[in-house]
Amino acid sequence: MLELIVYGVVLGSIIALGSIGLTLIWGITDLFNCAHGDQITVGAYIALLFVSLFSRIGFLQAKVGPFSFNWGVLLAFIPAIIISVGLAIFIEHWVYKPLRNTGAHFITSFIASVGVAWVLRGLIYMIWGAEFHFYTSGLRPMIFLPQGIKLRVDEIFIVIVAWAAVAAVYLFMSKAKMGKALRALADNPELARISGINTQRMIDWAWGLAGTLIAIAGVLYGIETQLRPEMGWIFLLPLFAAIILGGKGSITGALAGGLILGIAQQVSTAWLSPTYKPAVAFIIMILFLLFRPKGIFGKG
């Protein structure tokens, strides 16, 4: 059982990392971004592009400490983040901003984000094909903990980065002036404007933040599993479930939601076939919707 809980924490941390950017945008712009998963995929593939470019640089080929990936992968985070941020702001300006300015129903923006998702996935398929890719080849080192718990060393890295990202975004939102303005915008966009806050610039900043988190999630997800064009899309449903559990716009809620889902999914395998894991996540989500529709930390 302890073993399953540890695996659940790993899975939950990955879900949490993927869902912070999603809940942030949901809280601030009301958009339930269906392209979020495919933006994660783009982040992962952009890093792949740079990893292969860096493969000619000898000293970047050394593995980072005990992990499976090399310094090239670590360095590739930077261009992945830059391009992911640029892409997010580009989509905002060409799709969501015009829709918001015409006062479109939130479902219209949601449908538009489905279109964006397909375009991004189509591009990934066209450029990289349907086959699987890996950042680095070779064995993935394992670590053996007491109680027969086996973890990949990479997973420890992922858990640390996920929690650090949650903590950093949480601190930013509660302490930094910009973070407070983003929360103000989520609360009441018109009052934010009246107070002199340039709301469009704030929304661009929010996409910048989301784009950064998306790229980090994408590369880490790529390290954890492998790169394939559907990776982000398939990942999307648990992310939706996590942010609904956590409550609209809540960073700590996304972490709590991710952990609950991760642990519940893994623990359920003690009784159910592992293929039922996603269904367990949905049933928890639906129960939450019925009994606590504002989420764990949702505002009353």
């Binding site: 929360r183 103000a184 989520a186 609360d187 009441n188 009052l191 934010a192 009246i194 505002k299």
Partner: peptide
């Protein structure tokens, strides 16, 4: 404004 003139979660 008359209504909704504060940021409730702040």
């Amino acid at each position: 404004p008359q209504e909704e003139n504060v940021f409730p979660s702040l």
